[in-house]
Design a protein around this nucleic acid. Structure first.
Lengths: 239, 239
DNA sequence: TTGACAACATACCGAGTAGTATGTTTTCGT
DNA sequence: ACGAAAACATACTACTCGGTATGTTGTCAA
């Protein structure tokens, strides 16, 4: 089914820095605070002091763990992609029909998106940053790698969509375009969703259900409502 | 059909500043250059000197026409919304079935989006800016107004989608969510589309066709492919 | 001609910021 | 216990940028 060109092993090993060293608790806290700041103010408007203040720490502490502001941003990006892969990958390789697998992937994606909004918004900024131009050569290289990562993620969905298309004899002219549209629907929440204090889990499930149904119809597939609910329940259970 | 709560007159009068004064050529050039800069680098990373340099002018010239960097951004945003309204409005009030009207609106939206990418990206940034928080009280007020404008735009689509739902007896649970998903598909191009030098018009038409078909299926509607092409041809003709 | 105003250009200031250099404390292997 | 390295904190520098104050040039009505 996914026998197509995908020699790319998805590396889901525990989080580590590019140099291979492990991530300490302190670094994880920095990444989280940085993600919040980048979400609130964007990359350019966020100062290292902002991040430090959010941690009740100092600039020196940040620079002890990360070489530069750009590096910090990249690590936040990497962490965000990791969250997505970790959530979706099990279902991409799981059992069941292609349609069921795609549906589970979509539910997992939508939920992790709403739960980790800060990281997700950083991903968007990363894409934007790519269209512009990172300064140094080393940074460009890192950024390329991150974008590759994102493309690989999209490819996972594209293959699942293609498999579903084959399975149901759907007429999908351009699977690349279809996957972009498909993910655009699932990703749309980052632009407007803000969790309410109460009942946020139920709320998220309802939204996810609607979004996935919309996206599936978009590629021509249908998933009965009660089946969607059932899949979603099992999905949430895993969390 | 759109008898629902929409007392809001869409103001499409020729472009003018908030104080009512007309826009000069110089101001239009500044707006265009600023849109390019904001697209390339984002609001925070763009300096007034950057905009001036792109015009081979000076900072003083910019500040002669706009009170502040934020004001300039708001005007770019306003101009972007204006372009969208101008493109879509005729079809929202046009003739034909609800499905045909919605389709025409979608085509127009998709095309203006690809043609005026710089302004469209600024719109996205404006939404992001709203989620964060503009500094001064006056700026917040202006931003609220701009967001209202955007919501009004979304409402135009929501009403068209509701009308189509009534017409075709579609099962649209949450029309607000549906319109957000719908527009997310059409808007997705700003994140990846870059025009090729040759044949860009044909390319844009093909993409638009696919996107609109996807979005329509998303709400449960079907538009035969040849009909879509035909509508698109008449649409382009207007340009 | 002139004076008044618009349309710029130039010079400058103050606030903020990425990054560094260096000092201080905590941890930990031996 | 102790020395060394890790894990911070503090102080400082060089630089950018938004905004302003002020100077210069063109335009045009009276």
């Amino acid at each position: 089914m996914n026998s197509a060109a995908s020699p790319k092993k998805l590396k889901i090993q525990p989080h580590c820095l590019p140099d291979g060293s492990a991530v300490t608790d302190a670094q994880r806290e920095i990444l989280s605070a940085a993600a919040d700041c980048f979400e609130d103010q964007g990359f350019a408007a966020t100062s290292i002091d902002d991040v430090a203040r959010r941690l009740s720490a100092t600039k020196g502490m940040i620079y002890h763990h990360f070489r530069s502001k750009t590096d910090l941003f990249f690590e936040v990006y990497r962490r965000g992609m990791e969250l997505n892969f970790a959530a979706v990958h099990p279902y991409a390789e799981g059992t069941g029909t292609a349609l069921v697998r795609l549906t589970k992937m979509s539910i997992a994606h939508s939920i992790v998106l709403m739960e980790e909004q800060a990281f997700q918004r950083v991903l968007m900024q990363g894409v934007l940053m790519h269209q512009q131009g990172a300064t140094t050569a080393a940074q460009r290289e890192t950024l390329e790698e991150l974008i590759d990562n994102r493309n690989a993620y999209e490819a996972v969905f594209r293959e699942a969509i293609e498999a579903t298309g084959d399975e149901l004899n759907l007429d999908i002219a351009d699977s690349s375009l279809a996957s972009k549209s498909y993910l655009a629907v699932l990703n749309s929440t980052v632009n407007w969703y803000t969790p309410r204090e109460k009942d946020s889990e139920h709320e998220r499930m309802a939204i996810t259900c609607d979004l996935v149904a919309f996206a599936l119809r978009g590629i021509g597939a249908e998933m009965p409502h009660e089946d969607l609910i059932r899949l979603e329940k099992t999905e949430i259970g895993k969390e």
